[in-house]
């Protein structure tokens, strides 16, 4: 159990130590993202061989996170394997983006907006990269009193340009940015209606808030208040979006068709906002001590 406070606004009791919770969070995310990718790639019947890459990767990456999370002090070899797997996850994400981009370019290499909007989602594979990067940072610990000096279990320390917490904030912020951009592109398919704009407006706002905090040397309690409630709103918007997408897939019939789930509104996609909201709260949760306001 870990008693933590979030920006002096909430005290919660985490079921386990924060770092372990982060690793489990990464593992669960890898798992569900992998399932989502498997469903999406099933549209092409997995005929292109490279569409198997994320499907082979995600269970291995997820298992590594779960194993490491239950090791209070992971051994050197375990840490190395985990780092290698998370690095592979980053590569899978970047490669996936390259593949998706290649897929929407017509054979002559030019781009049209129709293919950007209706083709394979270019930014979606970066979810693997972001989650894996999070998994990479999650096994590190910041040396007490020395911001930016990160200790990797069994491997020593390395000097990062910014503090560990800011790394996490940047990941959350960029996660919101990618989700917002994906939402802008995907919702362009059939025109922007008011409820589709919720995801876009909120995504842009959340991105700005988080990155502002990540960039700031100082922030006020009111900024903390805005950040906190933005993360709560992210969870709400995510669940709402899930409901909207599910409603679209039900097509007013009360029955799910697998085909509609695969090609129409992606049911799990909006939950990414909720995911980022929870992560955003977790990364700023500290063990009942004053969160330093200076970098």
């Amino acid at each position: 159990m870990d008693n933590v406070e979030i920006f002096h606004l909430a005290n919660i009791r985490l079921p386990m130590e924060k770092n372990r919770l982060l690793l489990i969070f990464v593992g669960i995310n890898l798992f569900f993202t992998g399932i989502d990718v498997a469903l999406a790639h099933s549209i092409n019947y997995f005929i292109p061989v490279y569409e198997w890459i994320p499907i082979f990767y995600f269970p291995i990456g997820a298992i590594s996170c779960f194993i490491i999370s239950f090791e209070p002090s992971p051994r050197k070899w375990a840490a190395l394997v985990h780092i290698a797997l998370m690095s592979a996850g980053i590569l899978v994400g970047v490669l996936g983006t390259a593949f998706h981009l290649n897929a929407i370019l017509n054979p002559l290499g030019s781009l049209t907006w129709s293919w950007v909007v209706f083709g394979s989602p270019v930014l979606a594979p970066l979810a693997f990269a972001g989650i894996s990067l999070l998994g990479l940072y999650a096994i590190t610990e910041e040396v007490e009193g020395k911001e930016g000096i990160l200790r990797v279990p069994g491997l020593g320390t390395f000097h990062a340009p910014i503090s560990r917490n800011r790394h996490f904030l940047w990941l959350v912020g960029l996660g919101f940015a990618a989700s917002a951009l994906t939402s802008i592109i995907d919702h362009a398919q059939y025109g922007y209606s008011p409820y589709k704009m919720i995801a876009i407006v909120f995504g842009l706002f959340a991105t700005s808030v988080v990155i502002t905090i990540a960039l700031s040397k100082q922030w006020t309690k009111r900024d903390e208040f805005v950040y906190f409630w933005t993360m709560i709103a992210a969870i709400v918007v995510g669940v709402m979006g899930f409901g909207f997408h599910l409603s679209a897939d039900l097509a007013g019939t009360g029955q799910l068709s697998l085909e509609r789930m695969l090609v129409f509104a992606p049911v799990f996609a909006p939950l990414l906002y909720g995911d980022l909201g929870m992560l955003g709260l977790l990364v700023v949760a500290e063990k009942n001590k004053q969160l330093t306001m200076n970098n």
Partner: peptide, 13 residues
């Protein structure tokens, strides 16, 4: 009085 996160968030959005 307005937090910068809110102001920047609204402007950028």
């Amino acid at each position: 009085g307005l937090p910068k996160t809110l102001v920047i968030g609204v402007i950028v959005t």
